[in-house]
């Protein structure tokens, strides 16, 4: 009799352990989004000094912002190189840039930098630091028409090295009919709700496109950035397992998924 009880307890414990193992190592893997990286040819290489483009090593205080000394030069320097390199390549008149937002990850060398000039020009750049800097032009926004994409009926326009995807079909839907649960905390209400709503439509479109498994995705409100233009936003969502990073154009209702990384990666 006792033997039977011991056997039952043993099998129950073994079954529980097996379930835990499968859930951790298999089910979670199943739930991962297989993200297609942005192709290398969209990235631009930038040398630390480039005589052809006509710039020497950037100064540590390159950005016009008194707070930059609270950001390590390991972040600001590659970001400055990317900004200078892009400005020179595109023959921009602007030479002084205010650092509006910068975040990065020391381990992988990923940096996101958002700058603005006195003339109202704004750059959204994703940078990989290291021995060789490379960057992805998410958006170069200027006041008025003239660049590839219009914003606000010609109030602004922007160029981008990214391939944008429309989410217009999603935004016609009612939020209640959406397939995925996309939420945000009360802290996110500090921002205009248009960014929260529109980002949810774009996420819904992306998750549908990659046939992601169900589950709740929550907006990371601390990481939300909206440029002065008010149309382009840098946004992160997480489902606890992965974090999805996108840039959103709420005027043209289009987005680009920039990266999907593991949530364990405190890269953001």
């Amino acid at each position: 009799m006792h033997k039977k009880i011991y056997m039952i307890i043993f099998f129950l414990i073994a079954g529980f352990c097996l379930f835990q193992f499968v859930q951790k190592n298999y089910l979670k893997q199943m739930a991962l989004i297989d993200f297609a990286e942005i192709s290398e040819d969209r990235w631009t290489e930038a040398k630390w000094k480039d005589e052809v483009l006509g710039y020497t090593a950037v100064e540590h205080d390159f950005f016009r912002d008194p707070n930059q000394k609270y950001i390590p030069v390991g972040y600001t320097d590659p970001a400055a190189v990317a900004v200078v390199n892009y400005s020179k390549r595109s023959e921009l008149e602007e030479s002084e840039w205010e650092l509006r937002r910068l975040y990065g990850d020391g381990d992988s060398g990923r940096i996101a930098v958002f700058v603005k000039s006195d003339t109202g020009r704004e750059l959204y750049l994703y940078v990989h630091g290291g021995a060789d800097v490379k960057y992805l032009l998410a958006a170069d926004v200027k006041e008025g028409e003239g660049l590839m994409y219009m914003l606000g009926d010609g109030r602004y326009s922007y160029d981008s090295a990214l391939e944008w995807t429309t989410y217009e079909m999603q935004s016609d839907k009612n939020r209640k009919t959406m397939q995925y649960s996309l939420t945000w905390s009360e802290n996110a209400w500090i921002y205009d709700t248009v960014y929260l709503e529109e980002s949810a439509y774009a996420m819904e479109d992306y998750l549908n496109a990659v046939k992601a498994p169900g589950g709740n995705w929550e907006l990371l409100d601390d990481d939300l950035y909206v440029g002065v233009n008010g149309y382009l936003a840098d946004i992160w969502y997480t489902n606890g397992i992965q974090k999805a990073h996108m840039i959103l154009d709420i005027w043209n209702k289009q987005y680009v998924m920039v990266e999907v990384i593991s949530s364990d990666d405190e890269g953001k």
Partner: peptide, 10 residues
């Protein structure tokens, strides 16, 4: 004003 796109009430 409006540069950071916070909700108007805040």
């Amino acid at each position: 004003a409006g540069e950071w796109h916070y909700a108007t009430e805040y």
